[in-house]
C-alpha cells in the first residue's frame, strides 16, 4: 500500500529528478519513477517481454523480463526481480544476462512452451533461448493464449471492461461474464489487435462484425462505403465526449485523403507567398 503511494508520488513528479544507474555496465539516466525495463531499453539492452505494452500499466504477468539487481554496498548479494515492475533507483546495478537470469528465464519459457506448444511466437522465443521442445508434459489441449492479459487491460484502459480473466489456476482464461455475449463490448477489436499471439477470433463481413459471440452492426464510410467501425464503437466514443459523432462518418483512409486535399488547397492558396522561405 505504502509502496504504491510512494510510486504514485514519484510518477506524479514527472520531469523531476533524473536517476543514474547501470545496466550491464552501461550507465544510463532515467526519470524518477521509471522502471528498470525502461532503463534497460534506454541503455540499448534487450530484455524479452510478452505482457509489456508501453501504453499500459506494467503487469508482471509473463516473468520473462527477469534481471538481477544489486548495489555496491550489498557485498556481492543480488536479487532476482522483474524489470517491468522494479522501480529504477539511483546507483542500482542491473545485470540482464547472468547465469541465474538466463537459467530462470529458460524455465519460464519452458513452462510457457508446455502451455502453448503450438504457438509460433512462443516457439520462436524458446528457440532463441535454446529450447526446441518443452521438458515438461506438453499441454494436451494446446492454446495460443499466454494469459498476458493485454486484452483485458486494454479493454479496461478504454473504460469498457467487457472481458476479464476468469477462474484460477489451470482453469484460468480470458472470457466475458458467463461465457456469453458481453453486454459492455463495443466490438472495437482492441483486444484482438493487441494480442501478441493473435488468438482472439473475430469476423468482419459485409456490414457486420462478430467477436466474443456478439454481433455488431457496422458503420459505413459515407464516402467510400467501407464498413470501418461498429455503430456501438462510434456511439460509445461520441457519447463519452472528446470526439463528435461526425468523426466516424469517414473511414481513416478517406480522412487522410481529405486532409491531403486540404493541404493541397492551402498550399495553392498560399502560392503567392513563398512557403518555407
Amino acid at each position: 500500500m505504502s509502496l504504491g503511494k510512494e510510486m504514485g508520488t514519484q510518477a506524479g513528479e514527472k520531469g523531476g529528478r533524473m536517476l543514474s544507474l547501470s545496466v550491464d555496465g552501461k550507465s544510463v539516466q532515467v526519470r524518477e519513477g521509471a522502471f528498470v525495463l525502461e532503463a534497460a531499453r534506454a541503455a540499448g539492452v534487450e530484455i524479452p517481454t510478452l505482457c509489456h505494452h508501453p501504453a499500459l500499466e506494467p503487469y508482471g504477468g509473463c516473468r520473462l523480463c527477469l534481471v538481477d539487481v544489486t548495489r555496491p554496498e550489498w557485498g556481492g548479494w543480488c536479487k532476482l526481480v522483474i524489470a517491468c515492475q522494479f522501480p529504477a533507483e539511483e546507483g542500482l546495478l542491473v545485470h540482464t544476462a547472468t547465469e541465474r537470469v538466463v537459467e530462470t528465464r529458460r524455465v519460464v519459457l519452458d513452462l510457457l512452451l508446455a502451455r502453448c506448444p503450438e504457438t509460433p511466437l512462443v516457439q520462436e522465443l524458446a528457440r532463441r533461448h535454446g529450447i526446441e521442445q518443452t521438458s515438461y508434459v506438453a499441454n494436451p489441449e494446446p492454446t495460443d493464449c499466454i494469459l498476458c492479459a493485454l486484452c483485458t487491460r486494454v479493454c479496461d484502459h478504454l473504460g469498457i471492461s467487457a472481458i476479464a480473466t476468469v477462474n484460477r489456476g489451470i482453469g484460468r482464461e480470458v472470457a466475458p461474464p458467463w461465457g456469453e455475449a458481453p453486454p459492455d463490448c463495443i466490438g472495437c477489436l482492441a483486444c484482438a489487435e493487441i494480442c501478441p499471439t493473435s488468438c482472439i477470433p473475430y469476423e468482419t463481413s459485409e456490414g457486420s462484425r462478430t467477436i466474443w459471440g456478439k454481433t455488431f452492426e457496422m458503420l459505413r464510410c459515407t464516402r467510400c462505403g467501407r464498413a470501418h467501425v461498429t455503430v456501438a464503437e462510434a456511439d460509445f466514443f461520441a457519447g463519452r465526449g472528446g470526439v463528435p459523432r461526425s468523426y466516424f462518418e469517414l473511414c481513416d483512409a478517406c480522412k487522410r485523403k481529405e486532409m491531403a486535399a486540404t493541404f493541397v488547397k492551402l498550399s495553392r492558396g498560399a502560392a503567392g507567398f513563398s512557403v518555407g522561405a
Partner: peptide, 12 residues
C-alpha cells in the same frame, strides 16, 4: 464492470 465482478466471483 460486470466482467470484474464475474472475475472475482470465479476466482475464489
Amino acid at each position: 464492470p460486470l466482467a470484474k465482478v464475474y472475475s472475482v466471483g470465479t476466482f475464489y
